[in-house]
């Protein structure tokens, strides 16, 4: 005698939901498409407008101006030079543009959400499990819904990257707001500050360092995701890695990988510098 437990149609349900969303959220996906695509084109065009050597000098000068540190400045110069030398300049610019656009979208949504979660206990209670879910779900899974929404290509890659890299922006902002000493917010209240004044004058400035830490995390996650997103047509360094894997060219694979590492280190140091800037 066989007794079969009816299978809960979780997958089917999700599929149906996605189908429904694809059909009914067309306006939103189109808006997202436009923003992402235009942003991407613009940044890419700007970065490629000048000759790589000149660009390397400009970026190096910028890094020095922002950090005033010799180590990272020299590293930037040599690192970017190496990338150019390996013939990965265009791919790197493409990856960087993707990261920048995805990060910008992620933090424009993530920071306000984090602020709301930091100020409201019940919003936090709803947001927290969603964040846990988002961060434990394997990164590849995000690629799947991206395709029906946006088709193969860079916009789908950006979408998956945004979803994947947003949680730290929300989490850190929430944490930063909550970490503001209670006596300081109480003091602001005692002097008759309204909610907005309290947020702008006290809570956000004091949470700034933590929020910047979240932005840093978001950038790093975005960078790691664009490689995976090469599977759905992100292009850039990621697709170089994929091509190398498929052709078993370990050398080329490592070269692209090193390119990503160089990009990551420069971005990380720059953002850390921004975060630690006093007042």
């Amino acid at each position: 005698m066989s007794f079969e437990l009816p299978r809960i149609p979780l997958g089917k349900g999700i599929e149906a939901t996605l189908d429904f969303l694809v059909e009914n959220l067309a306006f939103a996906t189109r808006a997202f498409s436009t923003v992402a695509d235009q942003g991407l084109r613009f940044i890419e065009a700007t970065l490629l407008a000048v000759h790589p050597v000149l660009m390397i000098v400009i970026v190096t000068a910028l890094v020095f101006a922002m950090t005033r540190k010799r180590g990272i400045t020299v590293f930037t110069f040599l690192g970017l030079g190496l990338i150019w030398n390996m013939g990965l300049w265009v791919a790197t610019v493409s990856t960087l543009s993707l990261v920048v656009v995805a990060t910008l979208i992620a933090i424009t949504i993530g920071i306000p959400l984090g602020i709301i979660a930091g100020l409201s206990e019940w919003v936090y209670r709803i947001v927290r499990p969603i964040l846990d879910f988002m961060q434990t779900l394997p990164a590849f899974v995000y690629l799947i819904p991206a395709i029906p929404f946006f088709g193969l290509g860079r916009v789908a890659a950006i979408f998956a990257t945004v979803v994947f890299s947003m949680p730290p922006a929300i989490r850190f902002t929430n944490l930063g707001i909550r970490q503001v000493p209670k006596e300081l917010t109480e003091c602001a209240d005692a002097f008759g500050a309204d909610r907005w004044q309290k947020l702008i004058k006290i809570q956000l400035p004091l949470a700034k360092t933590t929020i910047m830490g979240g932005v840093n995390q978001t950038v790093m996650l975005a960078l790691s995701m664009v490689v995976i997103a090469a599977m759905i047509g992100a292009g850039g360094l990621g697709s170089e890695v994929w091509r190398a894997i498929q052709r078993l060219q370990s050398g080329a694979g490592f070269e692209a990988g090193i390119g990503i590492v160089i990009l990551a280190i420069i971005l990380d140091r720059l953002l850390q510098q921004l975060a630690s800037k006093k007042r």
């Binding site: 000493p181 006596e183 109480e186 003091c187 006290i202």
Partner: peptide, 8 residues
Amino acid sequence: FQNFALFP
């Protein structure tokens, strides 16, 4: 306030 509560 007791612990001054100055805005750092």
